[in-house]
């Protein structure tokens, strides 16, 4: 079962929640800041909706929730495998 141990290690390293969480936190911060400083022309374009602010905050929350989920339930720790486990970290 060495293969399975190694592959679940890779799965842990690239847990998709970490990737989504990270990117959405960054996007959330950028778009929220843009939303705070939006000028009237931008707000008018979006029909008076402060869409950057709302979407920015929503993306920030989604990103944080993904990271929180990762923290609360980390990916399964691989079974101890007989072979070396040194690569890729």
């Amino acid at each position: 079962m060495a293969d399975e141990a190694r592959t679940s290690k890779a799965a842990r390293l690239f847990d998709v929640r970490r990737v989504i969480g990270g990117l959405f936190v960054v996007y959330g911060v950028i778009v929220t800041l843009l939303g705070i400083f939006d000028n009237q022309a931008e707000i008018d374009k979006a029909q008076g909706v402060r869409i950057n602010l709302w979407m920015g905050l929503a993306m920030l929350v989604l990103g944080l929730l993904m990271l929180l989920w990762l923290k609360l339930s980390p990916p399964e720790v691989p079974e101890p495998a007989p072979e070396e486990q040194t690569s890729a970290e």
Partner: peptide, 23 residues
């Protein structure tokens, strides 16, 4: 970045396929 990292961690195409069966 993920593409490069995945390449470093997963050595062969067979590995890649197996890693697929872990989602």
């Amino acid at each position: 970045g993920i593409g490069f990292a995945a390449r470093a961690a997963i050595k062969t195409s067979a590995d890649f396929f197996l890693s697929g069966r872990s989602m």
